[in-house]
């Protein structure tokens, strides 16, 4: 019984670490997407200009 409880607890904590790691990776993805596609600085816009047009991000 105890063993089972411990097992459940462990898998629950692994589950929440998994979700935390997925959240971190998705956040990184969104930060990169913002930098490439939406950052308002002229330098970022000029460097990624053709990419922004090709993927139809709002540009100019």
């Amino acid at each position: 019984m105890n063993f089972n409880n411990q097992n459940t607890l462990e898998s629950a904590s692994v589950g929440s670490t998994k979700n935390l790691q997925l959240l971190a990776a998705a956040t990184l993805g969104m930060v990169i997407l913002f930098g490439v596609g939406f950052a308002p600085m002229d330098m970022a816009h000029n460097a990624a200009h053709d990419t922004r047009h090709s993927v139809a991000f709002p540009c100019h």
Partner: peptide, 20 residues
Amino acid sequence: YTLLANFLMSLAYSLLLACA
């Protein structure tokens, strides 16, 4: 720079898709 931006954009999309 277009190549670099293409790579970063693909990386962002792939990260989001893999997470989901």
